[in-house]
Amino acid sequence: MKPDADTTIESAAIGAGHDGAAELVVNLRYPNGTVGPVVLDADIGFALLRTCGADSLNELKGHSWRAILESLHDV
């Protein structure tokens, strides 16, 4: 593990939520090399795209996990 490495977005995909709504499944790559998911609703998902200036889900890759927290201000 690199001591100063940050957790970053590895990938993102659309999933089907339990309530019938589409949701954004964001996979984060942690400094130890492992990958884990966080599931965002439409409000936060779109805010994340805006925060990262991303036009597509692919463009979320490489952004810091902190972008997810920042995107909360846009909800």
Binding site: I14, A16, G17, H18, G20, A21, A22, E23, L24, A42, G45, F46, L49, D55, S56, L57
Partner: peptide, 19 residues
């Protein structure tokens, strides 16, 4: 199976690939 439902009244992530 699980379905996704949406209308244009609320933005849906169904359109996340289409900015």
């Amino acid at each position: 199976p699980v379905d996704i439902s949406f209308s244009f009244l609320r933005p849906s992530l169904y359109f996340a690939r289409l900015p």
